[in-house]
């Protein structure tokens, strides 16, 4: 399982990368491994708003379904349309090609996010 430096993580296994005041959002390598072959992604379109901690979409594998939780609040600038057509990218390249949303950040509650080290520890400790 890989955890990348320079990203922040949620306990629900989303990652967030800040580029100035824009956040790029996706799901972690651990998330894709536990789901198995991902078959479907549902994401909100550009223009709609995220609220940190609330659900914004769904990923599905053959026999599991998982809600996505926003790691920050803000307005969606761009949604990865190509990912909708190729959900298998989430298995192949969760941190790059399979990014989900680009968000113009209005607020990040840092206290609810984990550093790479803490996320690694969180995953190991929760017995996975």
């Amino acid at each position: 399982m890989s955890v990348l430096d320079g990203l922040r993580y949620t306990k629900e296994h989303e990652w967030l990368r800040l580029e100035n005041d824009t956040a790029v959002i996706g799901i972690t390598d651990f998330a894709q491994q536990s789901l198995g072959d991902i078959t479907f992604v549902e994401l909100p379109s550009a223009g709609s708003n995220l609220i940190q901690g609330e659900t914004f979409g769904v990923v599905e594998s053959v026999k599991a379904v998982s809600d996505l939780y926003a790691p920050c609040s803000g307005e969606i600038l761009e949604m990865n349309q190509a990912l909708i057509d190729s959900p298998e990218w989430l298995n192949e390249d969760p941190y790059a090609k399979a990014w989900m949303l680009k968000v113009k950040v209005s607020e990040i509650k840092e206290g609810e996010l984990l550093s790479p080290e803490d996320y690694q520890k969180f995953v190991e400790e929760s017995g996975h």
Partner: peptide, 10 residues
Amino acid sequence: TMATREQHIR
């Protein structure tokens, strides 16, 4: 297929 809609999973 698309069983994730169904009662035993969702």
